[in-house]
Amino acid sequence: MNESPRVAGNIIRRMEMRFVNPILKSPYALILPALAICVCFSVIPALMAFRNSFFSVDYVAGVDRFAGMANYRSIFTDGAFIQVFRNTVVFTFFSAAFGIPLAVLTAVFLNSNSPLCNFTQGVVFTPHVISFVSVSTLWTFMMDPQFGILNYALGLLGIRPLMWLLGENTSLPSIIIVSVWKTLGYNVLIVVSALQTIPREVYESAMLDRSGPVRTFFHITLPMISPFFVFLITTCVAQTLNTFDLVRLMTGGGPKNSSNLMVYWIYETGYLHFQVGKAMAGAVIFLFFVGAVSLLNFALTSRRAYYQ
């Protein structure tokens, strides 16, 4: 009786060596599952988006015919697309313009091994592990124009209440605030790990040279962590360009498209309004834009920076 599991194990092992192993010896077999899913769910969708952007597609009516540049013409004559595109650029630019310097300052401030610093860094990182849904719900509550605590705080400072998410001029800045709040901890983490690559001796000799904290920051700290900026800016830009959850959950793109961003516009046009061709044309333009931004970012920053 004791023998039987071992015998069974031996049989399985022999079968494996005989039939499975010769297949798995081939690297192509090892990469096949990943490659198959990649082709079906990444390459083909991208090609489909490209193809459908030149077609007039209506799955309900069964229409699917070549339409030339009609979709592209329609998005450029449609004021909404231009506005959404501008919103996306503004949103991404300000998220990075506030988020990254704030992260560098916070990281320099917290860059020590004291318990208070570690605790604060842990607290600042918390929103990053929490879902966008939770964060959006919380901030929508605090930004409520009537009962929200933010307007109450503004009132204490003698500032008139804002409409926040419901105002045409304040909706986009509001979601920028939430986006910076959510991603700050991640950016701080990256900068702190960059700061830790700076040898202690560098700071010690700066001290001996009587270099003040501000001078040390600009002449030593910043140049020495510059290699990490490529990564930081790239991830920050890529993440904010693809923002969907905040728009979907907090403003629905409104009021009057004032906080609508590209991915939400594609969702609205193609998924909610069934204008598939038009949405895909927008997606293709967006893809080229994302590609151009990452190339530009890479070219500008890689001259001085290098990867680990």
Binding site: P45, M48, N52, A283, L287, V290
Partner: peptide, 10 residues
Amino acid sequence: VVPAQAVFLS
């Protein structure tokens, strides 16, 4: 390179 969010319709 290609953000899947942009081509989610496909």
